[in-house]
């Protein structure tokens, strides 16, 4: 099976029932998707599959054979932050950072679909993403700022 991860093609050895999360972290060493609940309930493992946010812990490799996967490593790095990363950084929307890769990829997908989301739309898009330390106020502010808000 194959995946294109952050623009690079990989031929894979993992079996068809291996969760995409484990393929990324263990076979490919892409560690930004976090293994939180591993049951679909926390959002920490979220990556983009062909542009759509997906829980990688719920996604068997066989179902996404040949897909394009984007993780936060493919969105921006420390020297070249994506505007969403920049907003999370400057507005202190990350403390421990465990939920942050999932929050950011989901935000990138939201802003692509809806460049000027209202607060309800932001809350809806991130409702499956649990943050246990920052709280959600700063996170929602960062999404608003990244969307070009005045803050």
């Amino acid at each position: 099976m194959k995946l294109n991860v952050n623009g690079v093609e990989h031929a894979l050895e993992s079996g068809a029932l291996t969760p995409l999360l484990h393929v990324l972290r263990e076979e490919l060493g892409v560690t930004s998707p976090k293994a939180g609940c591993q049951s679909g309930g926390c959002g920490a493992c979220t990556v983009l599959v062909d542009g759509e946010p997906r829980r990688s812990c719920l996604t068997p490799l066989g179902a996404v054979d040949g897909a394009e996967v984007t993780t936060i490593e493919g969105i921006g790095d420390a020297h070249d932050l994506h505007p969403v990363q920049e907003a999370f950084h400057t507005l202190h929307a990350a403390q421990c950072g465990f939920c942050t890769p999932g929050m950011i990829v989901a935000t990138v997908a939201l802003l692509k679909r809806l460049p000027q989301p209202g607060r309800r739309e932001i809350e809806r898009a991130l409702s499956g993403h649990i943050c246990r330390c920052t709280g959600y106020v700063k996170i929602v502010e960062a999404v608003e700022a990244a969307a070009g808000g005045s803050r």
Binding site: L17, P19, H22, Q38, G40, R55, C57, L58, T59, P60
Partner: peptide
Amino acid sequence: VVAGGTIALPDITH
């Protein structure tokens, strides 16, 4: 059967 896998995949993984 595994469809979306939202129930079945965690059952297999764990």
